[in-house]
Structure formats: C-alpha cells, structure tokens
Simulated assay, not measured.
Amino acid sequence: MGRKSSYSAEFRNDAVALYRAAGGKRTYAAVAADGGVNGETLRSWVRQADEQAGRGEPVAAGRDEELARLRAENGRLRRAKKEWELEREILRRAAQYFAEEMRA
C-alpha cells in the first residue's frame, strides 16, 4: 500500500469532475496543469473513480470471459494435437507394415 495522498478527497473529486466536464476536448496533462498536479496522477484518479462507480467492471468481466474462452480453446486444440499425433503414428506403423508385406 502506498503513502497517504497529500491531496484531499474533495480536491481529487473536483479535479476528476473538471476533466470530465472538458468532455475529452482537453488532455489529462492540460487539466492537471490547471490544478497543479501531474497528468498521470489525474489519470489514475479518473481511473479509480471509474472503478468505484462500477464503470471498470464490465471491461474486467469481458476480459475474464475472453480469457476463459481462450483457455478452453487452447485445451481443445492441445487435445486435438495429441489425437492427430496418435493418428499419424498409427498411419506410420500401418504404412511400415504394408511396405514389409509388399517386399515379402
């Protein structure tokens, strides 16, 4: 856990509100300069406010769903690879057997 912020919660909320009021017409750095803070600090405050308001949850849920889907697909592809390797080995042995039969 980090150190306690030197900025009050009211100041942080006002800075976030000021950034949102700009409606995307101003950058984090420009809005932060007006308040005397770093642009990255303001960006982290906006991100924290979004997460507290529940706006960050759908993105995380979407990522979790995609990760679960990709893991399932990865498992399916690994099983299919093992099956193909087994089939290839069976065909290789069958070809070897019939080649020996043809020579005899």
Results as ranks from 00 to 15, higher is better:
5 S>V: 03
55 R>D: 11
103 R>C: 02
12 R>W: 07
56 G>M: 01
37 V>N: 06
2 G>A: 13
52 Q>D: 13
74 N>F: 07
66 E>T: 13
71 R>K: 12
25 K>L: 10
56 G>I: 00
13 N>K: 14
84 W>F: 05
12 R>V: 10
92 R>W: 09
2 G>V: 13
82 K>W: 00
26 R>N: 10
48 Q>S: 10
74 N>E: 14
34 D>T: 14
30 A>R: 15
70 L>Q: 15
19 Y>F: 14
65 E>W: 00
24 G>W: 14
55 R>E: 11
2 G>Q: 09
99 A>Q: 08
32 A>H: 02
87 E>L: 09
91 L>V: 02
92 R>N: 04
95 A>S: 10
35 G>Q: 15
13 N>I: 08
28 Y>I: 04
10 E>C: 04
8 S>I: 13
68 A>W: 07
91 L>I: 09
20 R>T: 08
70 L>S: 06
30 A>C: 13
40 E>P: 01
78 R>P: 08
79 R>S: 14
78 R>H: 05
17 A>D: 03
66 E>D: 05
70 L>V: 15
62 G>N: 05
37 V>A: 10
37 V>W: 10
18 L>S: 14
73 E>Q: 05
104 A>S: 11
51 E>I: 05
60 A>H: 05
10 E>N: 15
47 R>H: 11
10 E>K: 15
9 A>R: 15
78 R>N: 09
11 F>L: 10
92 R>A: 08
92 R>P: 09
71 R>W: 03
86 L>P: 00
7 Y>T: 01
23 G>C: 04
76 R>T: 07
15 A>T: 07
62 G>I: 01
53 A>G: 09
30 A>T: 15
42 L>C: 06
103 R>L: 08
56 G>W: 02
34 D>E: 14
1 M>R: 06
42 L>K: 08
95 A>H: 09
1 M>G: 07
88 R>E: 13
75 G>W: 07
37 V>C: 12
73 E>F: 06
74 N>M: 14
98 F>S: 01
96 Q>Y: 12
94 A>K: 13
68 A>Q: 13
87 E>F: 04
26 R>K: 11
76 R>I: 06
103 R>F: 14
3 R>H: 12
63 R>N: 08
90 I>P: 05
33 A>Q: 11
7 Y>N: 03
37 V>F: 15
80 A>T: 00
